[in-house]
Design a protein around this nucleic acid. Sequence first.
DNA 1: CAGGTGATGTCAGTTGCTGTCATCACCAAC
DNA 2: GTTGGTGATGACAGCAACTGACATCACCTG
Lengths: 190, 190
Amino acid sequence: MGRWEPDARGRLARVALELYAERGFEQTTVEDIAERAGVTERTFFRHFADKREVLFDGSGALQQGLVDAIAGAPDGLSPIDVVGRAFAAAGSMLEDRRDHARRRSAVIAANPALQERELLKMAGLAAAATTALRARGVPDPAAGLAAQAGVAVFSVGFEAWVTGTSSDTLAATIEASLAQLRAVTAGAAP
Amino acid sequence: MGRWEPDARGRLARVALELYAERGFEQTTVEDIAERAGVTERTFFRHFADKREVLFDGSGALQQGLVDAIAGAPDGLSPIDVVGRAFAAAGSMLEDRRDHARRRSAVIAANPALQERELLKMAGLAAAATTALRARGVPDPAAGLAAQAGVAVFSVGFEAWVTGTSSDTLAATIEASLAQLRAVTAGAAP
DNA sequence: CAGGTGATGTCAGTTGCTGTCATCACCAAC
DNA sequence: GTTGGTGATGACAGCAACTGACATCACCTG
């Protein structure tokens, strides 16, 4: 066995979510988290840039999955379909962790500072999707608009999936959200 | 004349933008701002909730303009048209301050913490637009999707307006962005 | 077994932000 | 004109987030 318990990072992330859920984000100090995880405050900041980032450790993998799905999408799809399907595909990595997603979402919904960070991550997804669409030949500003529309579709779908009680998959919920967006934007300007 | 120079709030906002532009956001302390504005640090925090908020003092007025424009839109328009036109109308209050908008945007673009706050304001606009659309009878989830799509249209249009050198109005740029979104989402899912 | 490496601990320091109380011009009522 | 209330500010103490610098020590590598 090592000098310290292994996976300090994982312990910190789990403990942080626990404490944020128990007492609230602002009522939890980094020292609280570090103590319960059995490390020092300094070690927390070696693993996570700040007190919020600890809830968003998986966002890099989600972004990578999104980019891969856009790059690997079949030809002939419209940009919005590419992005919509890519979000549905990338979201599959959350599919079997709805309980965790629920707890995490509740914590984020309860605190504006955490919402800010989530929005920044979503903007990161949109930026990555824009680049991936351009690589497929989608011109500006269509690439950026399709990417942002995709984020909107994902957000609305994810919210419904995590809030709802039905057993619909996240992917199906996102596809439904995409269909709704198509309907909403279909009307021609008079 | 009063005991203190009037409009401490306005001075703080102007000085903050100045200093953020000169030295960068992180290299500027609140004490720097307060000192140049001729007040104490404590007074800064009486006017603004935190160091970032000082750049977003006008967002409340923009949101009010947006809500009013949605409420006052003519009947018979599709939701996305209502929102698109409302953003174009609300944006008119920025029309004659493009220089200021440019400086401010450059500062925000240079710092992720400021981008987070801007994204939170945009999310606030989307939430307000969603409520205003529901009041017009637009059902869920169409209201939320149209609102978020409207924010995407506004963001892309504003970015083009503030970055570009042409003399196109912000309203026209937003309308063009809306047309682009319509084109992007038009393709039917195969 | 000597030396390098990586993860952690320790500690001092800056800064954002808050609570509390004092101050003082201004204004209204008497 | 004096009195008392009000609103904006100053002064000050204190907490918590975050950072930089240096020490420690198990582990690996040659």
